[in-house]
Design a binder for these strands. Structure first.
Lengths: 149, 149
DNA sequence: GGCTGCGTTGAGACTCAGTCTCACTTGTGG
DNA sequence: CCACAAGTGAGACTGAGTCTCAACGCAGCC
C-alpha cells in the first residue's frame, strides 16, 4: 500500500519538486504497516537520522493528502492517523488491534447516500465511512490464544 | 435536539450527581443550533458568566458522550465537534454552511457493513458514517442569492 | 557544466485542544 | 443536619499542528 515510487511519481506529475526530504517522507510512509500518525513519522525520521524537520513532515502529508496518495482517518480515540492508498475515492476497514487497513469500494454506499439525500432534502457533497474491527489475522490469533508467539 | 431535561435526566438515571455546573453545561448544549466544539461551549460559558471551568466542560462532554446524549463528529477540517442527540446508534448529515445536523438511521448501511465483512474477512465491530453537504435551507438560500437578508 | 530564481526546508517560537493535579466545594444518603 | 465521596476550578502541563524567516537546493536555462 502506497509504495515509494507511486508516491514519488504522484508528486512529480502534480508538478511538485522531488526533493530529498520528500523522498525520505515517501520512504517512511512506504515502510509503514497499517495506519500511522504524523508523530510516528517524526519519530521514525529522527530514529533513522534522516534530518527531516517536523514541519516538513506535516507539510508533505498535507500535499500527499491533497494528491490522494495518503488518506486521513479519524480513529475512535480521536487521533488523526493516515494510510497510504490509491488515489481514488474509497473507504477503509481498520483493524483496532494491529492497525492494518484495507480499502473498500463505494459500491453499496452510493445507494445509501442517495437515499439519505432524498429523505432529508440535503445535497450531499461528501461523505466519510470508516469501519473498525478485527482483521482476519487478528481474529485467528484471538481464536487460538497462546499457541503463537 | 438534545434538550435540557433529557440531558439532565440521562445524567440522573446513570447515577451521576446533578450539580450546578453540569446543569449549566446541559443548558449550553441545549441552546446550540448545529454542531458545536468544546471551545465554543467554553466561550459561551464565559460570556454568560456561568463560572464553569474549562476542565468541567471537557469532563461533562466526556460523560455525555459515554451516555450517548452527545455524539462526537470529526469535521473534514479535522476539528472535533459535538452534536446533542438521542441515545441510539445512528449517523449524521452535516450542513457545511450553517452547521445544522440531522440524524439518519442505520437502515441501508447495515447491509453494506455486512457485505464488507464478508468480502474482507474482518469482524466489523464499529463503524462511523458522516455525510457533508448543504441542508435544504442553505440550498434555498444559495438558489436565490441576494433576495434574503 | 554552472547560474539563478523560486519552491522548499529546518529550527524553533507559537497557538490551541485536551489532560492532569490538587486543594476546595457541594450534592446526597443516612 | 452531617459526613464523605463525587465533583469542581485554577492553572500547570503536554503534545499536535501552524507559522515565520533566513538559508538551501531543485530544475530549467544557457
Amino acid at each position: 500500500m502506497g509504495d515509494l515510487t507511486s508516491i514519488v511519481t504522484a508528486l512529480d506529475v502534480a508538478g511538485y519538486r522531488l526533493t530529498e526530504p520528500r523522498r525520505s517522507v515517501a520512504a517512511l510512509i512506504a515502510d509503514q504497516d497499517g495506519h500511522f500518525t504524523a508523530a510516528e513519522l517524526v519519530r521514525d525520521a529522527r530514529a533513522r537520522q534522516l534530518g527531516v524537520g517536523r514541519a516538513t513532515i506535516f507539510r508533505t502529508l498535507e500535499v500527499l493528502e491533497d494528491l490522494g496518495a495518503v488518506e486521513r482517518l479519524d480513529l475512535p480515540s480521536g487521533e488523526h492517523a493516515y494510510v497510504g492508498c490509491e488515489p481514488a475515492h474509497h473507504h477503509h476497514v481498520v483493524c483496532s488491534r494491529c492497525g492494518r487497513t484495507d480499502e473498500i469500494d463505494d459500491e453499496g454506499l452510493r445507494a445509501v447516500v442517495a437515499d439519505v439525500a432524498r429523505r432529508t432534502g440535503y445535497r450531499v457533497d461528501d461523505h466519510r465511512l470508516e469501519l473498525f474491527g478485527l482483521c482476519p489475522a487478528c481474529l485467528d490469533r484471538a481464536a487460538t490464544p497462546a499457541t503463537t508467539a
